[in-house]
């Protein structure tokens, strides 16, 4: 009888559902920030501040981390555990790299004299990228959890794949949010 398999499937379903609902609330949070941004944008005192170019690098780094995560996931399904482990290591490094790059961007802006209250644009920039970064910290914890599962021995591939699926969803979601936020503060 496949009761155990059913149990695992149910658990996976629950976790997936929980994650998607959590992402719905995160979406509402950024939607609220975005609508506030749009409202404020129409004010007469809007002053667009120059954003440091390192943000482009950070975007690439985050994108690369998503790619390495996908590579790792695919490798694991094919039981190429070394490759999978390596992919996770790369994703972690790139993920932390993104955070370091964001901190770098903030420091560059401060060095240019652009602080949180300098203009409405800078206020939103710091606030939204800060909120995003906090979520990335949480996602890094999830990434670490999946990486640990990958590096340890004796994995059930199906269960591993489900767990990694959650990690991937969260990670790529935040990547998507970043692209959106970056576009918003750069273009609008």
């Amino acid at each position: 009888m496949n009761a155990l398999a059913d149990d695992i499937t149910l658990r996976e379903d629950q976790m997936r559902l929980g994650l998607w609902m959590f992402l719905a609330t995160v979406t509402m949070l950024f939607a609220a920030f975005t609508s506030a941004y749009i409202v404020r944008r129409s004010g007469s005192d809007w002053r667009h501040v120059a954003l440091p170019p390192i943000l482009w690098l950070n975007t690439l780094v985050l994108g690369a981390s998503s790619v390495t995560l996908e590579i790792a996931s695919r490798a694991g399904l094919e039981r190429r555990w070394r490759a999978a482990g390596g992919g996770f290591a790369a994703a972690l490094v790139l993920g932390f790299g993104f955070l370091a790059g964001q901190i770098g961007a903030w420091r560059q802006m401060v060095a240019e004299g652009v602080y949180l209250p300098s203009s409405p644009h800078s206020s939103f920039f710091y606030m939204m990228t800060g909120a995003h970064a906090l979520h990335v910290v949480a996602a890094l914890a999830v990434l670490l959890w999946s990486a640990a599962a990958t590096w340890s021995a004796g994995r059930d591939v199906r269960a591993w794949d489900a767990q990694v699926g959650l990690c991937r969803t969260f990670w790529h979601y935040l990547g998507g949010v970043w692209v959106f936020l970056f576009a918003l503060v750069s273009l609008y």
């Binding site: 949070l29 949180l116 209250p117």
Partner: peptide, 22 residues
């Protein structure tokens, strides 16, 4: 779940207005 986040966003903005000059 869907309704609380805008209050979170507003609370963050109010904290920033109160203490960080925004």
């Amino acid at each position: 779940l869907l309704a609380f986040p805008p209050l979170t966003a507003a609370a963050v903005m109010l904290l920033l207005d109160r203490h960080f000059g925004t």
